[in-house]
Design a protein around this nucleic acid. Structure first.
Lengths: 234, 234
DNA sequence: TGTACATCAGTGAACGCGCGTTCACTGATGTAC
DNA sequence: TGTACATCAGTGAACGCGCGTTCACTGATGTAC
């Protein structure tokens, strides 16, 4: 019981450390992270941090994993709480939630998708499946739309370049995803387009040029869905 | 004459410093840049660098400006040396050159479009026009295609959201660009889509998923041009 | 209830490091007469 | 052609700084009897 209590306090302190880390990064950028900086924020001595994380790298990894999970959670929440009547509408809500999460958590986004942190290499076996996981929500709505006939892929998006098709086919069979190659392909296209706008927004290059990013974003994503052959209800 | 000689030698050393800087960043990432690191590469003493650049920030700014110019040069070269018979074909060559430059110069790309360097803020008046400049090549080919009738914007890409249209209209009139709003709008869309794939490739998130990035990239850009209403010759 | 003991979160000092930048200087080169 | 001088690229020592990490420790808390 007392032991349990201790574990809870431990976890609370570990959380406080992570939160301080996020705060520091928010203020100073991804590279503003330091053991000593965290200690200062928490009014602790630097070595105290080592009771909770073996090293700065270990803390960084924890932060990255947290970000992946937070993003995936946000997408799943948006999907299951969408009030849209169709799979296509829910997909759009997920897509909008993607950008919203990135804008609300620019540091998290940079940890996942930004510059590699110098001297730090995220373990690929933690990273790759996590990237794939953020696909899954979108892909499954695409698949649903495909099966209900809401999505009927049209030219030129129903033509998959052979090399790409081979790769997607491998991914599907290796992971036994219960989906059509075309769903995977269209999800990949949406995924790249969405990242273009989000990256540019996070790094402040697009606001100046389009005036209103949320509207530009939603418009482009709607347009893309339409061009692919999804019947969108406006 | 001797003075001239000195200036040339001076410029040569400044170039050597920049090249060493690029090399360091290529090896260690954007944050691996340091005065002392450069000095070591060039077998110089750190203070010697200060004969050529007032500070590390000044050097960084020079590197960023160089990158902007190199990218713009590459795009202009691709446009004027394109063997494509139509404006649309030349535009595609420019778009392909964009990615090629980024892949060949990942550090340059990151300097322009990547994480802000901690503690460093690029002077906006150097940065914003430079971003605009990289638009110009693409925009002018779009404009040409529009005027020859090669490009006839179609639904949904001929509908510009009012807020965005207002912003683009402002940009055009403030800078007196001799182009139609729709050209600017379509260029913006291409620009965001292209960056999505390039960012993901530079940061190593897409190779795993699509198998062959160059083919995926060209396909998506062609598809987008087609969807916009450009008659592409395959 | 009261005392002896174990646990362990957090301390304080220290390590070796690389950093940007300054300063007074040296010594080769090229100029002026 | 030969000598005195100015220039200035590059040096070497030093500054104060923040970093990640180690180590032996302390002292409050909670446990066992």
């Amino acid at each position: 019981m007392a032991r349990k209590r201790n574990e809870e306090l431990n976890a609370a302190t570990a959380d406080a450390i992570k939160q301080a880390a996020r705060q520091l990064m928010a203020e100073e950028g991804t590279n503003g992270l330091s053991v000593r900086g965290i200690a200062k924020v928490l009014d602790l001595t630097p070595p105290a941090i080592y009771h909770y994380f073996a090293s700065l790298d270990a803390l960084t990894t924890a932060l990255i994993v947290d970000s992946f999970n937070a993003l995936a959670d946000a997408l799943e929440f948006a999907g299951s709480n969408s009030t849209a009547p169709t799979a296509g509408g829910k997909l759009l809500d997920v897509i909008l939630a993607y950008r919203q999460w990135a804008v609300d958590n620019p540091i998290g986004f940079q940890l996942i998708y930004g510059n590699p942190i110098p001297g730090y290499v995220a373990p690929a076996d933690a990273t790759v499946p996590a990237v794939v996981r953020t696909f899954v929500v979108s892909v499954s709505f695409l698949e649903e739309a495909l099966q209900t006939g809401e999505l009927v892929p049209v030219e030129p998006y129903n033509q998959i370049p052979p090399v790409v098709e081979a790769r997607l086919s491998d991914l599907i069979s290796q992971n036994q995803y219960p989906i059509a190659i075309i769903s995977m392909y269209l999800a990949m296209i949406l995924w790249t387009q969405l990242h273009g706008i989000i990256y540019l927004e996070i790094y402040n290059h697009i606001q100046f040029n389009v005036g209103n990013v949320p509207i530009f974003y939603e418009t482009q994503m709607r347009n893309m869905l339409t061009a692919m052959g999804l019947k969108m209800t406006r």
